[in-house]
Each structure stands twice: as C-alpha cells, then as structure tokens.
Nucleic acid binder design. Structure first.
Length: 115
DNA sequence: ACTGTGACACTGG
DNA sequence: ACCAGTGCCACAG
C-alpha cells in the first residue's frame, strides 16, 4: 500500500505541471493555464502557485490579451526574459496569436460551470 | 470552521 | 484605448 501519497493541493500540483509544459519562446495566460489544469475559474490561483513553487518558467505566464500583470521592476524583468527567448511584443502586449502555447488537452475532466 | 488572499478575467463608463 | 469596480474560487493560517 502506499505509504502516504500527498493528497495536498491537487490544483497547485496540476497548475505547476501545466506551467512546465510551456516550451521556450512561447507563453500562456493565467486563465488558460487554470483551464488546462482542470480548474477554469481559478486563474488567480495560478499566481499563487508561481510564488509557492520555485523553478517554474514564470516569465511565460501573462495576463489576458498577452499583457504583463506583474507590476514594478519585475514586470520589466519578465519582458526582458521573454524577448531573450524570442517572444516579440506589440506595445505592451505579446501577440498571443503567434506566441501563445496551446496545451494538448485538459488532463482531467474540466470543471464546468453549472447552468 | 471561518476569513483573508491573490503576478486574474471580464464588463461598463 | 484606458481605468475602476465586480465576480471568481481553491488554498493557507
């Protein structure tokens, strides 16, 4: 039997996993990541995961429309990092049509809002 | 068990 | 186009 599987924050682990799938030179958004992890309405939680789990490609995560949500100097840092990977900006935004990474599939049945 | 939190998304002015 | 306000929802203390 299993000694002790970590039934901790399934959402956190799922989101972290999804973020790691983003290849270099591509980006994604909070909402898309949350949805790909199976939790469509938990975009806000993605930010929490980025702060909790180190080693993630945090710079590849953008807000809706390809905007940088991270304020302050870190925001510029993010922009530099992305440009270093080949991601181009149009004004303050990234052209998602070109650089957004589309995840292969939602790992689990996505929670859908009840009608 | 309850309350606060968060690098959001979306809508209206 | 931009800003401010509102809704959202699982996690952590």
């Amino acid at each position: 039997m299993v000694p002790k599987p970590p039934p901790k924050a399934p959402l956190t682990a799922a989101i972290a996993s999804v973020i790691r799938q983003i290849p270099r030179g591509r980006v994604s958004t909070y909402g898309a990541i949350a949805a790909a992890a199976g939790y469509p309405r938990c975009a806000r939680h993605v930010s929490k995961v980025l702060n909790q789990v180190p080693g993630l490609p945090w710079q590849r995560v953008l807000g809706s429309g390809g905007r940088i949500s991270l304020p302050g100097e870190y925001g510029f840092e993010q922009r530099f990092q992305l440009e270093a990977e080949g991601v181009r900006f149009k004004g303050r935004r990234v052209d998602l049509a070109t650089f957004e990474y589309h995840f292969p599939r939602t790992p689990r049945g996505a929670l859908r809002r009840r009608p």
